Simulated scan of single mutants.
Amino acid sequence: MNFDDIIYEVSESFATITINRPKVLNAFTGHTVHELTQAFMLAWSDRSVRSVILTGAGDKAFCAGGDQSRREHGGYAGQREARSDLGIDIEALHSVIRDIPKPVIAAVNGYAIGGGHVLHVICDLTIASDQARFGQIGPKVGSVDAGFGTGYLAQLVGEKKAREIWFLCRQYSAAEAREMGLVNAVVPQERLIEEARAWAREIAQLSPTAIKLAKQSFNMASEKFRGVEAFASSALALYYDTDEAMEGRNAFVEKRRPDFAKFVK
């Protein structure tokens, strides 16, 4: 299958999915998300694939979240066949990463920000390069990712830290991310992909049925966040149609500080 925004490769016992939009720090559009979902489905159906590595092209970013230049009132442009009112089927992508009965390893090679940060959080394992940066940006750009982006994050790093991440929109180094339990390992940038492949090779030596059952068991405790995300997506589509949300988006595109003061009720 040919893709526009991603690269899909199968080697040995694992698939590698690379978000290939380095000029925009691998920010995703509705089309990118659609292709990512398709790629994960390919990996799911391929019996030779025992795990999946998700990464970003280049050495600057894993993924910087949604491409704000493609966002308009009510949601994202350019993917009108999307089922979601947002114009981007991010729920479907999140679901396939969780539901594929094979471990998904995020190889974070740079910025994992906003929706890109949520992607690595949902992955089963995260290996970060020593150049990686993590953080949320939603409240700066008039957006939020409720469910997995908030509640599940709190389950990983604790309520206080998760609220700090969202309420202050700071960025954190790979070392800080490891200290808070957000990543499993930190390696030099030049060793990142090989380290992810080494982990994938270890997984391939284990019982696939045991791995499948273990992943499904782990997911049970956080399954409630899928329902929260579905409700939040509907609410977010309404929020994206407001002047307040567009102020955040416009300020980001125009490279200025947003002025939210006029929206305080």
Rank of each mutant, 00 (worst) to 15 (best):
Y8G: 06
Y8N: 10
E9Q: 09
V10H: 14
V10G: 11
S11V: 10
E12D: 15
S13M: 04
S13V: 09
S13K: 13
F14G: 01
F14Q: 09
F14Y: 14
A15R: 08
A15G: 03
A15T: 12
T16G: 00
I17C: 05
I17A: 07
I17L: 04
T18S: 01
T18H: 04
I19W: 02
I19M: 03
R21K: 06
R21L: 03
R21D: 06
R21G: 03
K23G: 05
K23M: 01
K23Y: 08
V24Q: 10
N26C: 02
N26Q: 03
N26Y: 06
A27G: 12
A27T: 10
T29L: 15
T29G: 13
G30F: 13
H31V: 02
T32M: 03
V33P: 00
V33F: 04
V33E: 03
H34N: 10
H34Q: 10
E35C: 04
E35Y: 02
L36P: 00
L36N: 01
L36F: 02
T37H: 11
T37P: 00
Q38C: 05
A39I: 03
A39W: 01
A39R: 00
F40A: 06
F40W: 06
F40D: 01
M41K: 15
L42C: 08
L42R: 04
A43K: 02
W44F: 14
W44R: 14
W44T: 07
W44D: 13
S45P: 03
S45F: 10
D46R: 11
D46E: 12
D46S: 12
R47Y: 07
S48R: 14
S48V: 05
V49M: 05
V49T: 03
V49P: 00
R50T: 05
R50V: 08
S51D: 07
V52F: 00
V52C: 04
I53D: 03
I53L: 05
L54Y: 00
L54C: 09
L54S: 06
L54R: 05
T55F: 03
G56Q: 00
G56W: 12
A57Y: 04
A57H: 09
A57E: 13
A57C: 08
G58V: 02
G58C: 05
D59A: 10
D59V: 02
D59I: 03
K60Y: 06
A61N: 01
A61D: 11
F62D: 08
C63W: 02
C63P: 12
C63R: 00
A64W: 14
G65N: 11
G65P: 15
G66V: 14
G66Y: 01
D67Q: 00
S69C: 15
S69H: 07
S69N: 10
R70D: 13
R70E: 04
R70C: 08
R70P: 01
R70K: 07
R70M: 08
R71I: 15
R71P: 01
R71K: 06
E72F: 09
E72T: 03
H73V: 10
H73T: 14
G74Y: 15
A77F: 15
A77P: 00
A77Q: 06
A77S: 10
A77Y: 11
A77R: 07
G78S: 04
G78R: 11
G78N: 13
G78F: 15
G78Y: 15
